[in-house]
Nucleic acid binder design. Sequence first.
DNA 1: CTCGTAAGCGTATGCCGTACGCCTAAACCC
DNA 2: GGGTTTAGGCGTACGGCATACGCTTACGAG
Lengths: 204, 204
Amino acid sequence: MPRPRSLTHAQVASAALTVIDRDGLPGLSMRAVAKELGMSTMALYRYVDDREELEAQVVELVLGAVDTEPPPPDLPWCERIEVMAARLRDAVGAHPAIVPLTLTQRHRSPAQLRWAEAVLAILTAAGIEGEQRVIALRGLLAYIVGAIQLEHLGPLSGDGTVAISQLPPGDFPYMSETARQARDVGPDQEFLGGLAVLLRGLGA
Amino acid sequence: MPRPRSLTHAQVASAALTVIDRDGLPGLSMRAVAKELGMSTMALYRYVDDREELEAQVVELVLGAVDTEPPPPDLPWCERIEVMAARLRDAVGAHPAIVPLTLTQRHRSPAQLRWAEAVLAILTAAGIEGEQRVIALRGLLAYIVGAIQLEHLGPLSGDGTVAISQLPPGDFPYMSETARQARDVGPDQEFLGGLAVLLRGLGA
DNA sequence: CTCGTAAGCGTATGCCGTACGCCTAAACCC
DNA sequence: GGGTTTAGGCGTACGGCATACGCTTACGAG
């Protein structure tokens, strides 16, 4: 009987993501999202309780796009995990500015639950069980989360690496040399290389 | 000839850290820090250019407390890396609320440079060089950063694990079982267990 | 004692999130 | 088709935030 909603929750989250992609995370405000939707600021509060819920919906929108279907079962288990890891990384990488948001929202995300369930299935099939399986899942998550952040907040290809390579070799002999070598390591090589180390440790 | 400063930069950073420890990260504001110091808000701007610089000084205060001396050389290399990792984790763990700050400030931190230099020395002594050394350092950093965040924002001992353990076993068979097993895994076991996996991968 | 300098502060601006209350569009019932 | 009800949409207002700008004042050098 009441007046129907003129927007879906998905449209609201999507408008917020548009704002973030255009103006960066600092540009996200209730006013900006409302303007993006062509409504008044306060009308937005008919769809979300507060800013935090809006942020959660943005994270869910991005993480919800992650494919959680089991990878081809004919692949070796470690490659199947690589597929799952890459899907998560790619989804976040499409909207790098939300990285800090995933921090606080990640654990409440249904999409993340489905992702973890699929990874656990692979680990179990690989014969990893009990406490080792707990540690493996958390370790993978920690690595992926950390690697995504490092990649977007302090990339190997960025200014930081150049600055480090010019550090006085007397004080930082290893750092300056390593930074020079880091120029030849691309983002994919870095991410997959670290993941391969972790998987090798799991397999031994 | 001019009037002398009544505060050191360290005192300013320390006051900010006091505010964060007491009121959490959302409680950090220029006003709150100024009040903590007994000065007016604008007087604070004689010590920092803006809020971002204040945050950087807080991170540096915490990270600066990390011991970067080489661990006892008679330990196996992987145990020496464990020592270095634990020092970083302990320093941040003493002020968990700053975790999100370390994200954006980490790469500019001299303390972090010294830490990385020490780790690189250990890796090199272990025979890891070239691009593999780049990947090893970044992988370690990614894991440690991610693990610290997971530990403080979604701890295994927290509500999230309980909630997951009560998920419908039909939809999430592995997650619910794994969450039940996770209750027996303490924070140290989780952190060191994941690190051990990574180090095993580096050693193979 | 005087004076230059920078420390410290007061004020004001323009953001922000959001509590509260009004107006009105629309769907149901008759 | 008209009346009623219900929630959608909006305007206003408040308190808190970072911070630009300019004044005042404590201090040390001479």
